[in-house]
Write a protein that binds this DNA or RNA. Structure first.
Lengths: 192, 192
DNA sequence: TCTATCATGTAACCAGTTACATGATTTT
DNA sequence: AAAATCATGTAACTGGTTACATGATAGA
């Protein structure tokens, strides 16, 4: 089995559960549906996971066609094992939160290596970028209207975004608070 | 240069900027300081990044000691280039948000493949787990008292956690709302 | 003293990214 | 008809994870 690490494999299973396709078509369809906002993949990685899923028996070669002088295309379909894996994997992802490692969190854990003054500047810069993202997201949500179920991932993102904005604001205040801000202590410690 | 992908490399630079160490010691120190909550690494990957950083000239072999019949240990120290990279990298991470791919988000984008009834169950299960995590985090924050600057990453996590809890609650309601919930439409669509 | 665990590192394997290759179609 | 872009795939490189190896100390 794919050992459930690469989320692209999940997406491929999901799409093949609706109709057989060849890898290039998968690649296109995924991108067309905007799945590249929630799943990281490149043209090349699609071929990779298809091969992995094939080895694992979760999909199977369905037919091999040749259209004029184009390279051969192999069409893959999902197997019963594949359907089972899709279901179980999704259930697991939805039902059980797992520990993740957002880059900003990692940076925060090491941020004492910078001088507090520059950190404040950087945080303010981050804030304006975050607010830009929020504006874009709002626009996007206002525009399109497929059923909102298909925007649920966007809603989730927006929630996280708001939380991050709030956090950054608080953090800036904690550093700069004139009465008991961390700035001075931090600056002192930083001379080492 | 390390091309700035593996955050472990950043942590290694940060620690070596305080004192030279050998890889095993790095591994231990990182774990002792709880950096494994914010950065994903294993014993083996530390050796890997040390080698990469060495190749990139960001750290340098300082001395090679042998203690009794233990294997030789090589002690590494940061170079001036390494210090510059540490600073720039951190600045970038703090100042500029980047697009990330949380697993729950990916799952959400495909969740229509499950029946709405089971999704609701799963979300409720997720909620109790999330609330457990929140309780643990609160306890942890109440207990320890190094300067809160060293818990800032925890505070960030908590913010995200709250946001996720709120989102999941809303989502459950949207599915199950008796007047215009998505449940029926979703269930119907799901027969395909 | 036997066993378990720590200290330290290497090597083999697997996954992911990037770059390249080539014929087909479309645009200028 | 030249240039650009699309359609389709392969191959090479690089990074990350896992498993293994081996002497040292400590506990039973």
């Amino acid at each position: 089995m794919s050992s459930r690490k690469n989320l692209l494999a999940l997406a491929v299973l999901a799409y093949l559960s609706q109709a057989p396709m060849h890898p290039y078509e998968l690649s296109k369809t995924l991108r067309a549906h905007g799945d590249d906002r929630s799943i990281k993949f490149t043209h090349g990685s699609v071929y990779m996971v298809v091969e992995q899923l094939l080895k694992a028996g979760l999909i199977a070669e369905q037919e091999t066609t040749r259209d004029g002088q184009r390279p051969e295309r192999t069409v893959y379909g999902i197997t019963p094992d594949g359907r089972a894996e899709l279901r179980d994997w999704l259930r697991d992802l939805v039902g059980t939160p797992r520990h993740e490692f957002p880059a900003f969190g990692s940076a925060l854990s090491l941020v004492s290596a910078l001088h507090p003054d520059v950190v404040v500047e950087l945080l303010q810069q981050r804030l304006v970028r975050l607010e830009e993202q929020r504006a874009e997201a709002a626009e996007l949500a206002a525009g399109a209207t497929p059923h909102p179920l298909f925007l649920v991932e966007e809603a989730y993102r927006q929630g996280l975004l708001e939380a991050e904005i709030a956090f950054v604001r608080r953090f800036v205040e904690q550093i700069t608070d004139p009465v008991d801000g961390w700035g001075p202590m931090w600056a002192a410690y930083h001379e080492t």
